[in-house]
Design a protein around this nucleic acid. Structure first.
Lengths: 194, 194
DNA sequence: AGTTTCGGTCAACGCACGTATAATGAACGG
DNA sequence: CCGTTCATTATACGTGCGTTGACCGAAACT
């Protein structure tokens, strides 16, 4: 009667656990991204994941720990090259984020703004990313340029996904990236005295 | 014994009231800017203003209302002109914000990200500002350009004052503005087919 | 003067949250 | 088949918050 291809075996305890754990993490990510750290409640996350609130505590120990686990994201590297290449790489990075709307990085971003303490780890990660970006930009003010580039990327993401303001909220990634290319090329030091 | 020029008259009730009210509003602005909407507590604001918590309620009725009153800010107009002039005007606007670190606009910005409901009014204001900016930018994609410009301004402010990340946190306004000039000129449509 | 108005304090309520702990029942290992 | 483990639930505790209403005392008014 039931599907033949189905294993139909009841999931093992380990599978079960992994399953609910990721369901909780996904729900948490969504909530942190949409509501920020403070307004995200453990009970609501649990409900969205279809489990009891106590379980979230049992698995993650505390809200802060849940946040850390939910908002972990792979560091994005940007290779060295000519200014235009660096600009291109950064724009590709931005495009990727615009295309798949990375819930995790939104969770970090929004939560860094709502509860800096909770996002202390991510400050460190952001600083590292800045340093790395600085290293591939020429000029004496590379540090500032990197910082501004970072600010623009975050600004665009914030306005599109968090504030949902203006055309940036619905424009195609390609339009946005194309519009920003001259900006990025200027900031990565295209007309810099080497 | 006391200063001769001092009126030394005890302040009238109306003066008294206005005084404490503005003290409360200032304290609220600072708190909203630094902590965001959620983490700002009425009691803390009251304490910072040197009054009792109940009084804040008495004067403003609710936390939301306090926020609305505290975060009111004058709309900033940007005059029409050539693309380079518009860019210049926008940069001046940014410079002003970088120089006097406008607590009010930070309060709005941070709170729009922490509690969108509370900042509904300010969304409307932001939309109006965007429309106005769109009107002075040439080209068919003026709307998107305006939105991106707005995103950059907010991104820079967020990174400098809210995240305090990288060199943007301590660089001089002039440096920042100079660095962004080419960006803004490109976005205001300097090389646009009219 | 007496009375009203009103800036301001104080103590309390109700609620929602993070968290802790005990209990349940099914999977697991022998 | 029995004891253990462990995923999961139910319940309760403590706290801090927004909000309320009663109260006090001095200014304002007549």
């Amino acid at each position: 009667m039931n599907g033949v291809n189905e294993p139909s075996r009841r999931p093992s305890r380990a599978e079960q656990r992994r399953g609910t754990e990721t369901r909780i993490l996904e729900a948490a990510r969504r909530s942190f991204a949409e509501l920020g750290y403070e307004r995200t409640t453990i009970r609501a996350v649990a409900a969205a994941a279809g489990v009891n609130g106590g379980l979230v505590m049992h698995y993650f120990g505390s809200k802060e720990e849940l946040f850390s686990r939910a908002a972990k994201l792979a560091p994005d590297e940007v290779a060295a090259g000519t200014p235009d290449e660096v600009a291109g790489a950064l724009l590709e990075l931005l495009r990727k984020r615009l295309v798949d709307e990375p819930v995790a990085s939104l969770a970090v971003l929004r939560s860094m703004l709502t509860h800096a303490d909770a996002a202390e780890d991510f400050r460190a990660a952001a600083v590292r990313r800045l340093e790395q970006l600085t290293a591939v930009i020429p000029g004496t003010d590379a540090e500032l340029r990197a910082s501004v580039l970072n600010a623009i990327i975050n600004g665009v993401l914030v306005e599109r996904y968090l504030l949902r303001l203006g055309r940036l909220a619905d424009a195609s990634p390609d339009e946005i990236v194309d519009l920003l290319r001259p900006c990025f090329q200027s900031l990565t030091g295209r007309d810099q005295a080497m």
